[in-house]
Design a protein around this nucleic acid. Structure first.
Length: 256
DNA sequence: ATGGCTACGATCCGTAGA
């Protein structure tokens, strides 16, 4: 089964790309981020017609996450329980034998800013949530836009990005704290080519220069990591006209 | 030179993303 994540940067703008991509890549479960629309504006009918059940946690203009699945989505939980946050960034559900959590982690804007402090607090809250979810659900997958490039090899120009938001040491420590719960970065379970990224700035022909960052991730609990046979970035949608600035990431799991 | 795109919701610019 294939589990995918994609920051679509507006579901309304990207729907004409999402539908053909679903037909081509045939993911079984999809985590979407940055819907930028309320639940009422989510294209549920078109996605259900494409064969996907939908769970949506939408927000106008900013944020917003959704889960798509070819099997029913059950026990849907929005947000991080106990962490009061008006920003719609987290959505979890059970599907088949998995617990799947879709996350859109804060950007942080600039090191030292209020948004950066919010980002670090948000990661601490997420870590606590993951610990409790892992106890309840051994088969846990956490997929989304983490807005952290975990290591220098996940950055096209580590010198230029040193200490900058998305690559700063406190953010990387927050990322490692997520892994300390026992979750694995599915991408790093495998030998990978160098300079594989998931996001490229719209400006300065960054995609053509492969001037990107690897900030979108699929984390897997130990039992799921043992079933994972591939974890790849699908660059094809980033090559389209009027693309999202993020490419999808697809992890493939053997059936238990 | 701290810019450069893109999306959104407000109007014909500001906010935010990363």
């Amino acid at each position: 089964m294939k589990l995918a994540t994609w920051n679509v940067n507006s579901i309304k703008v990207r729907l004409p790309q999402l539908l053909p991509w679903l037909a081509e890549a045939k993911p079984d479960v999809v985590c979407l981020q940055e819907l930028k629309t309320e639940d009422a504006g989510f294209p549920r009918e078109a996605l259900e017609a494409a064969g996907y059940a939908c769970a949506v946690h939408g927000q106008r203009t900013y944020n917003g996450v959704a889960l798509l699945a070819r099997s029913p989505l059950e026990d849907v939980v929005a947000g991080i329980p106990g962490f009061d946050d008006p920003q719609k960034r987290v959505l979890a559900a059970s599907v088949l034998d998995l617990r799947v959590m879709c996350v859109y982690c804060p950007n942080g804007q600039a090191v030292g800013s209020d948004k950066y402090e919010y980002k670090l607090q948000w990661f601490a809250a997420l870590r606590g949530y993951l610990e409790s979810e892992l106890k309840a659900h051994p088969n846990l997958a956490v997929a989304g836009d983490f807005n952290v490039a975990p290591e220098d090899r996940d950055v096209h120009d580590p010198k230029a990005w040193e200490g900058q938001v998305l690559a700063s040491e406190p953010e990387r420590a927050a990322w490692r704290a997520l892994l300390a719960t026992g979750l694995k970065d599915s991408f790093r379970l495998f030998e990978q080519p160098e300079k594989i990224f998931s996001w490229w700035d719209y400006r300065m022909m960054a995609f053509r220069r492969n001037a990107g960052l690897r900030i979108d991730h699929v984390l897997l609990s130990e039992p799921l990591a043992a079933r994972c046979v591939a974890s790849v970035v699908d660059k094809a949608p980033r090559r389209l006209e009027r693309p999202s600035d993020h490419a999808p990431l697809i992890a493939e799991l053997r059936t238990a």
